[in-house]
Write a protein that binds this DNA or RNA. Sequence first.
DNA 1: TGATTTATGGAACGATCAGTACTAAATTCT
DNA 2: AGAATTTAGTACTGATCGTTCCATAAATCA
Lengths: 196, 196
Amino acid sequence: MTRGRPIAFSPDEAANAAMQVFWNRGYESSSTRELLEAMCLSRSSLYQAFGNKEQLFLEALRRYRESLVERLGRRLEVAPSAMTFLTSLFRETAQEAGGDRAAQGCLIFNSASELGQRDGLPSQHARHSIAAITALFHEAVSRAQTEGDIASSRNTDALASYLTMGMAGLRTLLKSGADAEQASQAVELLLGGLQH
Amino acid sequence: MTRGRPIAFSPDEAANAAMQVFWNRGYESSSTRELLEAMCLSRSSLYQAFGNKEQLFLEALRRYRESLVERLGRRLEVAPSAMTFLTSLFRETAQEAGGDRAAQGCLIFNSASELGQRDGLPSQHARHSIAAITALFHEAVSRAQTEGDIASSRNTDALASYLTMGMAGLRTLLKSGADAEQASQAVELLLGGLQH
DNA sequence: TGATTTATGGAACGATCAGTACTAAATTCT
DNA sequence: AGAATTTAGTACTGATCGTTCCATAAATCA
C-alpha cells in the first residue's frame, strides 16, 4: 500500500507541459522557472518527480518521439499506400508555413540541431530520435517498393536518409519564414526524387 | 588625428574569434565569459568595441555570411560549369561526415534553427542570411539552365528553395552523426532531383 | 488518535548571467 | 613636461541560473 500524502498533479500532464516548453525554447534556453510555471507545480515537486532538468528533458523527448513514431506508424498503416502517406506528410508539413506550428518546428530536429554531437545523454537521445525517424521512413519506402510505387531496384537505406534529410531541411526552411508556395515547390521536387 | 591610447587588439581577429564561439555554441548559449576568453580581450574592451552581445553576434553573423557568399560566389565563377559547382559543393559537404566541421555545422543554418521566427535583430538577420544562400543557389541554377545542364523549362525559384532545403537537411543529418556513406547517398538523390 | 510517510511551498545556496562604473595605464597634442 | 584623451583591467551590479534544504501539510497505517 502507498503511504503518505498523494501527489496533487498528473505526472503525465506535467511532462507534456514540459515538452511544450522544450519544444518552443530548446533545451538549454528553457529555464526551470519557465518549466515550473508551465507545469503548474512547485520546485520540489519537479525535482522529486523528474530528478533534474536533464532527466526531465530526456523524458519530454522520449514522449515526443514515441508519440510521433506511434502516430505516424498508425497513419502509415491505414494509408491506402505508403506513397500517399509520404506525399501527404510532406505536403501537409509544407502547408504549415507561416503558422505557429512551423515556427515551433519539430522537437527532434530542433534538439539534433541544438545538441549536435556533444557528449551526454541529451545529445545522444536526440541522435537516437533522428534514427527513429529514419527507421520510419525506411519502413514506408520499403512498403512503397513492395506496392510498386518505388522501383525495388533502388536503395532503400539511401531513400530513407534522403527523406530524413528532406524533412530536416523542410523544417529549417519553415523556421526561417518560407511561405507556403516556396515550401510546397521544394517539397514537390523532393517527392519527385522518390520516383526517378 | 587620433589621440589617446591605441587599441592593443585587432578588431578583425577579435570578431573572428567571437564568430567561432557563436558557431560552436549558438547565440544564447555563448556566454560573455567564453567570448572574452576566445577574443583575448577585457570586458570593457568588448563593450567599448562591439556594444553588447547582440551587436557582437550580428557582426559575427554578418562576417560569416559575407565571407561565405563571397567565397562560394568566387567558386561558382571559376567553376567549369554551375552544375559542377553545385555537385561538388554538396558532395564535399557530405564528405565532412564525422569530422569536427560536420559537428559545427553552418552558422547560418544553426542560427536559423535556434532563433526561428522570433522578434529581434538576431532572428531577422538569420532569416536574411538564409535568403542570401537561396539567392546564391538561384544564381547557380540559373546559370546551369543557360549552360544546358538544367532544363530551362524548370522553375528556377523552386530549384533554389529545393537546394537550400537540401543543404539545411544535410547539415542537420551531419550534426546528428550520419556517416559519409549515408550522407553521400542522400546527396546523390538530392542532386538527381536537379536533372529530372 | 498518534506515528509514519510522502508531497508541497518557499527560502536559501553558490554560481553565473549580461552589463556598468571606476581607476590605472598608455598614448598624442600643446 | 603636462594636459587631454582613449584603452584596459577589475570590482561590482542586480538578476537569474539549476539545485538543495527544511519546515509544513496531507495522507495512511497501527
